[in-house]
């Protein structure tokens, strides 16, 4: 555990040293380190001993990508020859496109990507592919074909959520979905899984509203408040991620309605697990996201050290990460060091 805690500090120190180098450069001291003079590294065909470059372009700062990044760094830092960078997409496609361009130009060996939009990032992925760079998407798939996609089993997980949620609701009642914005494949996977799960296990439960709250806790509070005004008889709510489910819990708490509405989230972040233990959130689909990051990194390392070019893939690779439906009775199984 200590090494895990130390690692971010190493990262900070590296950033700090680079800032110092920039400062020196600005004053004309000319601190040209060996890194700056080294010849460029060939893409995806690095021999042993050469430095490989990988970057993760996240959607926006959030618990999930932060934990992936930690998992990715866990694996990459052990390889000894991989430079890794976490880059922030600021929830904007144009920012992600610009960062993709920079990484392609910089000769990245692998790019990890959590797309802001599954369609709009397509041309950028195609560009990376033309440059031979494998792109690995995390959780949010892209319409454009790429090397691999590593996800939390959205469809099957949401089906299990529907099953568990229906049981908690006694097999009847009215539910609302607090959803992701359109244009993202994960939205369809989780929504379809949930809808199909209700049809299969609890056909009497009705879905009366499905509204986007952009993954955001605050926005989910507003959206759910409005829904509640129109449908005071709601007895279930599915937040397509934990942040939105916790937004629903916030509203219920404030209105003194806790316990009257069954609330499920998705992802399994630390705050959600604590909320379940406190008897507020009913449940969530928990995935060990550190592990998901490690799996993605392992895939990337094998590709990069094996010299696998993006053009060698016949089809997009898929990897589904195992999960647990965490409720009050099962949340205790999740160990402290698996919580993120």
């Amino acid at each position: 555990m200590t090494s895990q805690q130390d690692r971010p500090r190493h990262g900070e120190r590296r950033d700090f040293l680079k800032s110092v180098a920039l400062g020196a450069a600005a004053f004309g001291i000319g601190a040209a380190g060996p890194e700056m003079l080294s010849p460029s590294v060939g893409r995806a065909q690095a021999a042993v001993g050469k430095t490989l470059k990988m970057a993760f372009i996240q959607f926006m700062p959030h618990t999930v990508p932060a934990a992936w990044s930690k998992g990715i760094e866990d694996v990459l830092s052990k390889q000894g020859n991989i430079d890794y960078q976490l880059l922030d997409g600021q929830a904007k496609v144009e920012v992600q496109i610009s960062l993709m361009d920079t990484q392609i130009n910089d000769g990245a060996n692998v790019i990890f990507l959590q797309p802001v939009d599954s369609v709009a990032i397509g041309p950028s992925i195609a560009k990376a592919k033309r440059a031979g760079i494998p792109v690995i998407t995390l959780n949010i798939d892209a319409v454009e074909d790429h090397a691999a996609h590593v996800e939390m089993s959205h469809y099957a997980g949401a089906m299990d959520i529907a099953k568990s949620m229906g049981e908690a609701m006694g097999g009847k009642g009215k539910v609302v979905i607090i959803n992701a914005p359109p244009g993202i494949i994960i939205r369809d996977q989780r929504t379809n899984g949930f809808v199909d799960g209700l049809k299969k296990y609890h056909p009497e439960i009705q879905i009366i509203a499905d509204q986007p709250a952009d993954w955001d806790r605050k926005k989910a509070q507003d959206v759910f408040t409005t829904i509640l005004a129109a449908h005071p008889d709601v007895t279930g709510a599915f937040g397509v991620n934990d942040s939105m489910a916790l937004g629903v819990v916030d509203v219920l708490k404030q209105k003194g309605m806790l316990g009257k509405v069954v609330v499920f989230g998705d992802d399994g972040e630390k705050d959600a697990l604590e909320s379940i233990e406190a008897g507020e959130l009913t449940g969530t689909q928990y995935t060990d996201v550190y592990q998901q990051g490690r799996f993605a990194a392992a895939t990337a390392v094998v590709l990069a050290t094996g010299g696998v070019d993006a053009s060698s893939f016949r089809a997009k690779g898929h990897l589904l990460i195992p999960y647990v439906i965490a409720t009050k009775s099962t949340v205790g199984q999740i160990q402290p060091d698996q919580r993120w």
Partner: peptide, 16 residues
């Protein structure tokens, strides 16, 4: 220009 680049229009396009 953005629609040509994205091949779609995102709800958040232009934010910020």
């Amino acid at each position: 220009i953005l629609v040509a680049r994205f091949t779609t229009a995102t709800e958040a396009a232009g934010t910020g």
